[in-house]
Design a protein around this nucleic acid. Structure first.
Lengths: 200, 200
DNA sequence: TACTTTTGCTAACGCTGTTAGGTAATATAG
DNA sequence: CTATATTACCTAACAGCGTTAGCAAAAGTA
């Protein structure tokens, strides 16, 4: 009697249709706009059915996040295979990671919870340019005194700020508890690397 | 007749009390839990009053974001003043930025929209450790072949991932349009810096 | 055929951002 | 000092959200 098998199969089908619909909505309107009711309408079931398959909305997002990491992982594996030289592998994986992020923006944003109130909020903050200038000057000075005086200070500023932000946000995600000495090393590693990168 | 002045002053007072209450709530419960109704209750006014001072909820968050950047800016200015040597300035500002982020977590999270569904979501993703191992191996290889064989591969992995994430998220925030060549330079800059940082 | 389990629904609870419309207090003009 | 205009403020609602209780119908089992 394949009845239970069929039932399991049907349940599985609903589950995957929920994920599919959710993903469609995320792509179309961003994960901010994702709602249980919209998913229910898309799969042509009533709302409570969704709760037979997922504990809550977060569980759905979590599943999409996992999907994203699996895809990313596959990409990285592919990239790594292209060479057996460690530095080439690292390089290829970095590019691959980068490409994944921009070719699968929706995934990356779900994975890291990016894109809050509105991403363009940044452009409404004049204070931002103020402190850009603040960091820009010493970078220019450093470039002027370096071996490569043709280096682009704006690029360096952008890199500086971005990397620092990355270090902080990953640390905040992991809710770093009692890892003070690790943090000290991380940021020290970053600063010395950045400065020596300019000096050439 | 200082009547209009008094009225302006009173309006200003309500406005700042809104921001104050909002900030209090953000600190206590995180910006996810911030709601117009809670603010209204806190300032002991009805809900629509808030809309006399701010166009919408986002405008309130934006104001808090601006506050955050102003405070951060002041910190950076202070840090910069401690030296006149460019690299010392950059170093001091990096540390200052880092400290600001962790001493003012709430601000930093509002500023960059951090902390989505739940920050601990990351710990529920086994896929994460899979691809950690993926990147870890070539890093270990590279360290083994470098001048500093005592370097911590986990630290390097952490740094690698964090920086890359920072570059990507800042780029996504700025909604990078037609800046392909800039992106190419940014990531190239990062990779070469990272690898040469390990090689020593 | 009678009973049990599964399946799916309606309707509600308590939130959310936002706004329409009305009332009461205040300020201005005659 | 009264009448008018303005401002300040509130109640109540709309439309949406995540989540769940409780019930009806269908499907499977005996």
């Amino acid at each position: 009697m394949g009845i239970v098998e069929r039932k399991i199969r049907q349940k599985e089908e609903i589950r995957s249709s929920i994920l599919k619909a959710a993903w469609q909505l995320v792509i179309e309107e961003g994960w901010q706009a994702l709602s249980i009711r919209k998913i229910a309408e898309a799969i042509e079931y009533s709302v409570p059915v969704i709760y037979d398959h997922f504990a809550n909305k977060e569980a759905i997002l979590l599943e999409l996040t996992k999907q994203g990491f699996r895809i990313l992982n596959d990409e990285l594996v592919k990239a790594k295979k292209r060479s057996s030289i460690p530095e080439k592998q690292i390089e290829a994986m970095a590019y691959s990671y980068w490409e994944f992020a921009f070719e699968n923006k929706a995934y990356y944003q779900v994975m890291y919870g990016l894109g809050m109130p509105s991403c363009e909020i940044v452009n409404q903050i004049p204070e931002l340019s103020t402190f850009s200038a603040l960091i820009l000057q010493p970078i220019k000075d450093l470039i002027a005194a370096s071996k490569n005086t043709a280096a682009d200070p704006f690029l360096k500023l952008h890199t500086f700020w971005s990397m620092l932000h990355g270090l902080i946000s990953i640390n905040m995600m992991n809710n770093n508890q009692g890892k003070e000495e690790l943090n000290q090393m991380v940021i020290h590693d970053f600063i010395t690397g950045f400065i020596s990168g300019i000096k050439g």
